[in-house]
Design a binder for these strands. Sequence first.
DNA 1: GTAGCTGCAAACAATTTGCACACCG
DNA 2: CGGTGTGCAAATTGTTTGCAGCTAC
Lengths: 164, 164
Amino acid sequence: MSSATTARDPSRATTGRVRNTRQAATIEDVLREQDGFRSAQQLHAAIVASGGKVGLTTVYRYLNTLAESGRADVVHNAEGEAQFRLCGEAAVAEHSDAGHHHHIVCRVCGRSVEVSGPEVEAWAERVAAAAGYTEVTHTLEVFGRCPEHSPRRAAPKRTATHRG
Amino acid sequence: MSSATTARDPSRATTGRVRNTRQAATIEDVLREQDGFRSAQQLHAAIVASGGKVGLTTVYRYLNTLAESGRADVVHNAEGEAQFRLCGEAAVAEHSDAGHHHHIVCRVCGRSVEVSGPEVEAWAERVAAAAGYTEVTHTLEVFGRCPEHSPRRAAPKRTATHRG
DNA sequence: GTAGCTGCAAACAATTTGCACACCG
DNA sequence: CGGTGTGCAAATTGTTTGCAGCTAC
C-alpha cells in the first residue's frame, strides 16, 4: 500500500463527476489495487489504513457514481452487502452498459476472475421465454476458493452447492 | 386473505422447530398464499393487515428456520433485501439440501416460476474448475415480467440485460 | 467567485439480540 | 411443570441525507 499513484487522474471525464479531486483519485486508486470485489467499508478502511483521508460518505458516493456510469461492477454478497470492483477496461467497451460478464469471486481473498457465459445468457433467455417472461434480467454470482486458498489436494468436501 | 387455514399444522416436524405454535402456522400460511417471493417485512405486514398477531421478530426467526432447514428459498433483490418463498414441496425431496433449482421472478407481481438448470450448474462448475476454484457455490436469479405483466405484443425494448 | 465535492453527524431501514413472560406438550 | 417460542425494545450494521465549509476550475 505504498502511497503510489495517489494523484489526480486527468483521464476522468464522461458521466457525472466534473471535478478532479484528491479523494476521488484516492478511491479509484485503492480500488485499482484490489484484485477482487471489496465493500465500501473495506475500501474505506484500506484508505485510512494507508494514511489516506477520505470520508466514508464520500467513498459511498463516489462508488455509486462509478457504478452508475458503468465504470464499476457491483455484486451483493450473501449477506446483501454491496461489493464493488473497477470494471475491466475491456468491458466498458461499447455501450455504457458494461459488457456481458460475470465473476468467480474467491470467498477468502475476494480475488476474482471475469468470465463470459454465453451459455448462461442463452439459457436464461430461453427458459424465461418459455415461461412467457419478458424483459429478462439475471444476476449470476459464483463464489469459491481460488487456487491459492484451496485446500491442498485433499478431496474437497463438496464440489458444488447452491443458493437461489 | 380470508383467515383460511390459520390453524396449527400437524405435518411439521423435522429440523429445528419442535413446537407447533399459532404464529408459526400463521406465517407459513401467509407464505403459502403468496405466489412469489416476499420480504419478511411484507409478510409481517400482510399478517397484521389480515388481523393476525405475530411479532416482526418472530417472522424473521421463523423465516430463517425455514430457510435453514431447506423448507424455504431465499433470494436477495437488487437492493439486498432478503426475500422468502416456501420451497416447492417437490424440491425438498431427498436431501435437506433443497434440490437444485432457480427462479424466474416477476419484477411486477413477484410471482415466480421454478426452473432447474443443469446446464448452468455444469457451466458454473466447469468455468470455476478451469480457473482453479474449488468449493464452488453460485447464486443465480432471473427477473423479468411474467406474461400477465408483459407489454402486449409490442417489441420489447431489450431482450436481456445483466448484472453481476 | 461559485458551484461541485467533502465530511461530520444524524437519519434510516433491515435484521439481530437480550431478556422476561407465555404457552405447548 | 419445564423448556421452547414469542415479543418488545434496544442494539447493530450498512447506507443515505442534511448542511456548512473547502476547493478545483
